[in-house]
Amino acid sequence: MKILKKQKEKFQLKIPSKTDNLELIRTMIAHIAKTVGFDEDDVNKIELAVDEACANVIKHAYYKDTKDSIDLIVEIDYKKLTVIITDQGIGFDVKNILNRDIKNYLAQMKVGGLGIHLMKALMDEVEFKSKPGIKTEVKMVKYFVKDGKVENRVEK
């Protein structure tokens, strides 16, 4: 069965912002990615990118484990998987984060800041929107690609 162009599947998870939930988040996203037809390599990439995004929320947005939640939305359409991760934490300066030179960063042996670099390397599109104290949203996209071309998803 092919997914029709206007057809979308949507999964939603609201989860307490605690590091011990990262395993559950990874299990869920890996299961979805595998089920919709990504190969093992892409499943691993999506799993790690989502882990990094959620770990950033837990560590930075809310500073530590709290009663606050992470909202995770996964949308599948005929050509891509989109993950949207939202928090109501402190937010950040998007430009500052995106312009970091990872080599200088590493050479200075600074801890942290690696997650966003990984997310950008692992996913096809990564977008941040931050209104500090109100809402920060990270949107990441992975296309169904075969032999370098985006291909329409075929249900297995």
Partner: peptide, 16 residues
């Protein structure tokens, strides 16, 4: 079986 950047950060914290 699995590592995220938090794991790599541990080594960065000590290496110097």
């Amino acid at each position: 079986a699995y590592i995220s950047s938090a794991g790599l950060g541990v080594f960065m914290g000590f290496i110097e």
